[in-house]
Structure formats: C-alpha cells, structure tokens
C-alpha cells in the first residue's frame, strides 16, 4: 500500500469538497440556532432542518466523490496514476468518511453544548441525539457502500431516499422505547442498557458495512 498516494488522493477530495463542507456547517448551525430558540415550532423546524442538512450533505458527498468521479470520467484520470484498486478504495473510503465526520462532529459537539446549557432541554436528551447522529452516520456508511460497490447514481439516490425513510421510522421507534423515554427526560445523562445496546449495535453495523465494502471491492478485477 502506497500511503503517499493515498494521502494525495484524500487531499484532492478534501480540496474539492471544501465549499460543500462550509455550506453544510453554516446551514447546520442555523438549524441549531432555531433549535435553541426555545419555541416548540422552531425547535421542530430546526431539528428537521439539521437532519435534512446532514442527509443532503452525505448524499452530495457520496454522489460527487464516488459516483460522480465515474460519471464525469475523472476516475480514468485518477486510475492512470500509479495506484491500485485497493489504494483507490482505501483513499475514497477514508476521505468520504473524514469529510463527513467534520460537520458531523461539529454538530455533535454543539448539540452537547446546547443541551447541557439550556435549562428547557433535559441533559438526558443528548443520549438520544447521539443515537440519532450515529444512525445518520450508519445511513451514510450504507450509502457509501452502495455507491462504491454499484457506482450508480440511481442506486445511490435510492439509498438516500430509503435511508431517509428508515430514519423517520427509526426515530419514531427508538423514541417510543420506555428506557429511552426515561433517559431523554432525565435531568442528567443516563446510560441504561437499552441505550448502550443501541449505540453498540450502530457501531457494529457501521464496522460491518465498511468491511463488506472493502471485501467486495477487493474481489473486483476490472477497475473500469
């Protein structure tokens, strides 16, 4: 594995995605501002906006970094460089993940600050936010796997829509679990077994998705 080249490819992806990262961070902070307004309608609007920003950002990243590189035929240029498929896949996965994690982490930290500093929101609510943000990361990893493996715009957009629909069901379902309800409502952070099980499951699915992607990619013979 030539790490020097992998690093070059990651830099290149980052360079082209800077405006998208900036835009999504700004929109996300706007959403958090609405959430902090202490008004239930704006709280709902802000939360939905934040979720939409994260989903849309993930969609744009996956389609432009992975699928777009094929459809705009810039991939042929990259593959003419002395890299192997393994290096290409590694670079793509790392850059797509790292770039996604920038706004994701920013939103995680700022919602932590927001929740712990606002009396109206119980601190336990942060646990729920973490569950939802991890689910969004999971959705993104699923989308990334689909995009890297199929390299098809159509499948990628289906992945985005399906991921978004399951998110609604997920939030509804998890939010209705009694253990989660008590955790959300408690004034200090509570980590009960239901909560930790969900978090652990999410992390494991994410790791499984990433490994499957690497495995499938390593079995592809033709790069084009």
């Amino acid at each position: 594995m030539n790490y020097f080249l992998v690093q070059k490819l990651i830099y290149k992806d980052w360079y082209f995605q800077r405006p998208t990262v900036l835009g999504s961070v700004l929109l996300g902070f706007l959403a958090l501002l609405l959430v902090g307004l202490q008004n239930s309608i704006w709280f709902t609007a802000g939360s939905i906006l934040l979720l939409t920003v994260i989903i849309a950002f993930g969609g744009i990243l996956a389609t432009s970094l992975v699928v777009g590189e094929r459809s705009t035929q810039t991939r042929l240029f990259i593959l003419s460089l002395p890299i192997s498929m393994r290096e290409y896949t590694t670079a793509k996965m790392i850059s797509s993940l790292l770039i996604f994690l920038i706004p994701w982490t920013a939103f995680l930290i700022s919602s932590y600050i927001l929740i712990t500093n606002q009396a109206a929101l119980p601190d336990g609510f942060f646990a729920f936010v973490l569950v939802v943000l991890l689910e969004l990361l999971l959705n993104y990893c699923l989308l990334l796997s689909i995009s890297v493996i199929t390299e098809s715009q159509g499948w990628a957009s289906f992945g985005i829509i399906v991921g978004n629909l399951t998110l609604n069901a997920f939030i509804f379902y998890v939010g209705s679990l009694p253990d989660i309800k008590t955790a959300i409502a408690s004034s200090s952070m509570v980590w009960n077994s239901t909560l930790t099980t969900i978090l652990l499951l999410e992390v494991m699915v994410i790791l499984a998705l990433l490994s499957v992607t690497f495995y499938v990619q390593s079995r592809k013979k033709d790069l084009i």
């Binding site: 360079y15 705009t72 810039t74 240029f77 002395p82 890299i83």
Partner: peptide, 30 residues
C-alpha cells in the same frame, strides 16, 4: 505489477476528464 509499471506510463484517453472546478495550474501542481 501494474501499479509499479504505471509510474513510467503516460496514459491519456479521449474520454478522460480533468476536474472542471479546478484550474490547469492546480492539476499541474498536484
């Protein structure tokens, strides 16, 4: 030995594209 050999090959193709949002200078530097 493809990745090794490719260091010494210049390959261009009619359907190869560069990054539209970057300058030629950026490509050269990269």
């Amino acid at each position: 030995h493809a990745d090794q050999v490719k260091w010494d090959i210049g390959y261009i193709s009619e359907d190869m594209r560069l990054y539209p949002q970057a300058t030629l200078e950026w490509h050269m530097n990269w």
